[in-house]
Design a binder for these strands. Sequence first.
DNA 1: CTTTCTATATGGCATTACCTAGTAGCTATC
DNA 2: GATAGCTACTAGGTAATGCCATATAGAAAG
Lengths: 113, 113
Amino acid sequence: MAKQTQMLKGVLEGCILEIISQEETYGYAVCEQLVQAGFSHINEGIVYPILIRLEKKGWLLAEKRPSPYGPKRKYYRLTEMGERERNEFILHWTETKGRVDQIFERRISDENA
Amino acid sequence: MAKQTQMLKGVLEGCILEIISQEETYGYAVCEQLVQAGFSHINEGIVYPILIRLEKKGWLLAEKRPSPYGPKRKYYRLTEMGERERNEFILHWTETKGRVDQIFERRISDENA
DNA sequence: CTTTCTATATGGCATTACCTAGTAGCTATC
DNA sequence: GATAGCTACTAGGTAATGCCATATAGAAAG
């Protein structure tokens, strides 16, 4: 339980950037999408602080619009800087994934040798 | 540069467990393998503290043996607990990878729809 | 002997960002 | 008018853990 926490570091931010990049959306919905993707323990208290942080960094722009069901929604979209950061995340994520997988795949090729 | 740092959290430990699990080895060599896998900025000052930490947790056992080239090497191998932790890491890593990839793949299926 | 390569150790920092828990406000339903 | 679901926000805790600088030392080479 504490193990995944560490593994999330730096990953959540990237995922949120990606979700917003796919479609202008708001915090509550971002949260639902993360849960749906399997990050089942993620809740609003985790997502909102990240959203605010990203907005402060200038990676997101926000705009409030009424909701048919509750208080106003705060819709986010990526700025140009945000797009750049998202692309960098993809790069780093792909690299890291490749490196880790390479280490684990060595076992298989060893067994075949 | 600070970006990958966050992404490494929890991952480095798992990689080191895996490397040692594949073959009894020592810190300096672990370091070389990580560099070879692409973690090119990793150095002894990063690896040794992790090794010592893992030993203290009871996941590794150490034994010193002479080296033909320098001071004695400290060879590590996994304990039973270490094996369990390694398996847990694989589980969490696979899960996390799947979740992140799912979020990014949604874009592709959207574009096809 | 000085340098270089091999090899281990460690104190402290950064530090950040995840997580809990709680507040509050709007809409709809019953 | 009470409950339930939707929506946003904040304070504070914390703890892990990657990273750096530095020291030490054996062996080979020049």
